[in-house]
Amino acid sequence: MVGVVIVSHSQKVAEGIREMALQMSAPEQKIIAAGGMADGGIGTDAFQVSEAIISANTGDGVAVMVDLGSAVLSTETAFEFLDEELRAKVQIADAPILEGAISAVVEASLGSALAAVIATAEGARTLNKC
């Protein structure tokens, strides 16, 4: 099953999104939050992200949801710390972080492959709210 990593500048945001996503996940599904800095500050930490990706991977790859700006840079930096095998199986979803994470988690829970999980997360951009 594809794992999902949530990268936010805020630890609380990442944890909160994970909490919501867990409501919709399969029991054995890996959803890992990588939010904030080690000192509790606002920011993104590439090492935390790479560790999260490693823990989220069960062999089928990992979809990464990001918030703004440096979350993307840190995630791309994190990719450099991964071994080649895993690097080929991780992808950032160009999606709103919350809607993307939830859609990705549900798609992954169906046993879909990484490309489908990313596509569903990115499709969440078009979800209308009212």
């Binding site: 919501m20 409501q23 919709m24 399969a26 939830i102 549900v106 829970s109 169906l110």
Partner: peptide
Amino acid sequence: HARPAAQFVQ
């Protein structure tokens, strides 16, 4: 919505 929608799809 949300959780029920996920349960339905799953």
